[in-house]
Nucleic acid binder design. Structure first.
Lengths: 410, 410
DNA sequence: CGAGCTATATTTAGATTCTAAATTATCTCT
DNA sequence: AGAGATAATTTAGAATCTAAATATAGCTCG
């Protein structure tokens, strides 16, 4: 299949690739090595880079000058801390401002955009709601495009400065960035979005499942930093898991890996409903009882209302929470057993209330699995998915770095 | 932790590695490319290799002569099929006899060994039983070592010809080839086996979970050929899954990924017992009834007996099969939902009877998950794990090829 | 204030490896 | 035997690395 817009997907495994090789390949590798070092930390003196990369001094300097010429690095005045001996060293740093990336969280009703520099430092945020009624793909595209442009403007950058765009949607997305066939109206969004953003602005678009992006975010800057085997449960209207195994996101054949909403064990052990809906249902049941949930009318029962009532000591609401704990524990048990992650992070709409559920879940887990994962609540708030989209975009930029021609930046 | 014996684990992701580079790296890459082509097919003429690899004729010849000198390839007389014009081409082929690999399936009672050449063509088989009573690690090591040596002798090769040994055990094994702490006596087997086989014979040992190896085998030569997202259910006394996602085996943090035996959903949806035990239990229940399972005494109820009785039209036995179908369907539903494989292969002791369960499982699955996988029964028989061990060993050899000094082969 | 010290930068020589182009070799067919 | 075809081999050129030799810039101290 021809990709259009953002070319997604992975490079061939090394050693199998075909095509001409030559000494220039060596330069490509060394440049990538040096750039990776600069990106991680820096600025570094040449001597430090020699130490870090194992390359010769002459090589490091040549490569750095190459990178400066190409816009990825800059030579900086050596910071002179205290007296020093010897000839002053040249220092080079990564140009985090050589471009920007955009992270988009495209929800059913709301779209959030984040713009960051190439280190991932946030430059601006924007969001917009989809006007009620206008839920066509076209209307959606316009909102998404508009929100991205607004955030860009806010960051003082232009569309041509965007090196990659990560996009999270609440639908299965396969390894190649395609929405699985048959997943409601998101499907039409698939090719449409990547193509539209490419046509309008020339952007590389990386489409990905929202829970997967939340997992990337937790691993990058959240509760799962540094862990290579993690799952993130995004619980709200939907219930989805983003799974990282050995540092890589799991997609499955059609991108439906982790789509727990699809799990139906008929006896009710684990069900298809999102946590929010369950809270509503069970809360409504409770409200209908004489003991009922602080006198709420059934129509007033929302997930938030139930959590609040429980917080206020309402017994019926507390009972609902117990049932929620039980269900979450079962889901986490399945995850623990099948994938043996080191940590499961609870995120999504449930996050604010999850701390309250945590002790119950932790207590129930050892009875359900022999390899219980640690459990933590996400601290990233509502920006987790957009942040993960940034991470995805940055990874893409890093991978393509030396093939990208940078825009002139003022 | 210091590795001893077989160094297991993966290379650094390209681009992050450190150390001196130079033009010789280019030769390393080209040599690997050519060798990979030869390994896949061959023998090839130089012109074919030029086509296959994208390298220049001069380069291909230089690399091939290098590989011949190092023992990995051999120049062959061009097969002259029909009249041909022009100067006869030089042809090179992979030396599948440059060494051998050993695949071991170390079960609780029985150890099976396979010896193959470097293409994976089987040269010999051997097996041995663990003497009852002597279940110490030492006794086990002696049996394993003895079986491997017997198979080698049978293949007419010597221990020094062994380039790698794959070993499958019925326990969680992490990415680094270590048995998870706390998994009964297998634990002591971990370091012991790799170290012992290395000390005695200098072999590189790759330890891996048996279900994982079965998955490799199915993907290589079984029902899952060419598929990148597959799960293999090894059902017998234990219940374990080997999961391949995007072409890679899943291990999880401690190697316990897929250890379904550890899953306990208390309401019985999915349970800890192996299929064989369930058949016994349920069969015993049925036998205790007046209608009872062809008059078997409870002590005579084995999994095989139940399957046989059902085959003979016994109603109680058939009912047991229905319950088995139900349970298998639930397990496969969980796998399908969480990991979205393209195919689930049923293997292990249940395989001979699984064809009979298949229609029932297939019928139940769509009600349990929205992303049902295809289901097939393994056709590899009892050698699946040993064959997967061979595949694992071959992969290791391929990865290390150009760093391995080959033994002189007569 | 200049000599010496130190850490670093720069230059040079040498080795390896690739590609591309020119040359040579070997076989078949007429 | 010669023409034609296909492939091997040789040669020249360019890129890149390492290692070693040389040059430089700032500090320190007599």
């Amino acid at each position: 299949m021809q990709e259009r817009g953002g070319v997604q997907g992975r490079p061939e495994p090394a050693g199998t690739e075909t095509g001409p090789v030559g000494p220039h390949v060596v330069r490509f590798v060394t440049a990538r090595t040096v750039l990776a070092a600069l990106r991680r930390g820096g600025p570094f003196t040449v001597s430090e880079l020699v130490e870090l990369t194992g390359l010769t001094r002459a090589t490091v300097i040549a490569v750095c000058e190459d990178l400066v010429r190409r816009g990825w690095a800059e030579e900086q005045d050596p910071e002179r801390t205290g007296p020093q001996r010897g000839r002053p060293p040249r220092t080079f740093g990564f140009r985090a401002d050589a471009g920007v990336v955009v992270g988009l969280d495209v929800g059913a009703h709301k779209t959030t955009a984040l713009v960051t520099d190439l280190r991932g430092d946030i430059l601006s945020t924007a969001s917009g709601d989809l006007p009620r009624g206008a839920r066509t793909a076209q209307a959606r595209l316009d909102v998404v495009s508009g929100v991205a442009l607004a955030a860009l403007r806010d960051a003082g950058r232009e569309p041509r400065h965007v090196l990659a765009v990560g996009v999270g949607v609440a639908a299965p997305v396969d390894r190649n960035g395609h929405v699985a066939a048959g997943s409601d109206f998101w499907e039409m969004f698939d090719v449409g979005l990547a193509a539209a953003l490419f046509d309008r602005h020339g952007w590389h678009v990386l489409l990905e499942n929202d829970a997967n992006l939340a997992a990337l975010a937790e691993q990058w800057r959240g509760a799962a930093q540094g862990l290579d085997d993690v799952a993130v449960l995004l619980a709200g209207e939907r219930l989805g898991a983003g799974i990282i195994e050995s540092g890589r996101l799991l997609h499955g054949r059609n991108g439906a890996a982790g789509e727990l909403a699809f799990l139906r064990l008929v006896d009710g052990a684990v069900g298809p409903h999102g946590i929010a809906q369950l809270a509503r249902e069970w809360g409504a049941e409770a409200a209908a009882q004489p003991t009922g949930l602080a006198g709420l009318a059934p129509s007033e029962v929302t997930a938030e209302a139930v959590f609040t009532a429980a917080e206020d000591g309402d017994a019926a609401a507390a009972a609902v929470l117990v049932r929620l704990e039980d269900r979450m524990a079962r889901v986490i048990a399945v995850l623990s057993t099948l994938l043996n992650p080191e940590l499961v992070v609870l995120g999504g709409a449930i996050a604010p209330a999850a701390a309250r559920l945590l002790p119950g879940i932790r207590a129930a887990l050892p009875d359900l699995t022999e390899t219980p994962a640690e459990i933590e609540v996400s601290g990233l708030g509502g920006e987790a998915v957009a942040l993960g989209a940034i991470r995805r975009a940055l990874d893409d930029v890093a991978e393509r770095s030396l093939a990208i021609a940078l825009p002139d930046v003022g």
